[in-house]
Amino acid sequence: MSADAISVTELTVDYDGVTAIEDVGFTVSAEKLTAIVGPNGAGKSTLIKALLGLIPTRTGSISCFGTLPKQYRKKISYVPQRAQIDWEFPASVFDVVAMGLYSELGLLRYFSSAHKDRVQSALTDVDMADFAARQISQLSGGQQQRVFLARSIVQDAELILLDEPFGGIDVKSEAVIVDILRRQKQYGKSIVAVHHDLSTVTDYFDDVILLNKTVTAFGPVNNAFTKANIEKTYGVSNLDFLTGRA
């Protein structure tokens, strides 16, 4: 297996008739926590959609563990932004995590007690075992995020893509989720998250991709997440108040 979870070269993607990202190239190391950081409209969501193989690309190539994303789909799991989900949908915590098994179960295969155990064990991994029967409408933001992480775990995906996992979540829940992500990394998962809070990038992540239509820098946070690179990405100077760096 290649040491790169994702390798992108010269990628250009149009979205709604506009060039959303242009000539993007980077690699994501396997078994690392990687942040995608950039200003609004930088094309972060478009990049995630392209990585998932959901939208056509104009030029360039994407490979996941050395193969096309479409062929790798069942090993990729995606955690959407919480705002994109209808939390009034009639489903329990258990039901949502069980959806992670749908691709494995197919149309009609029986949901066995072994499947049930896997769902319960994934819920234990995110410390939500006691909430299995709870309706998803009755969860806090942090709990909702943990349910989706349990769904990724039950999918047994090797690559987990998250769109702003910490959006609108309190500090305590954020720490719990970071712990879960680090544990998954230790189990050999590669994790990529769109992230907004510049002040926590170095604390939470191993690697970073700085994006504004094109990639301004990528690599280990210590090398790539420099003041110069951040200013270049955001097109402004004096970001010290955001990053807490001198």
Binding site: Y78, F89, Y102, S103
Partner: peptide, 11 residues
């Protein structure tokens, strides 16, 4: 209906 990306990824 709940999460279109999930259904897409599941085939």
């Amino acid at each position: 209906i709940f999460d279109p990306v999930l259904s897409e990824m599941a085939g």
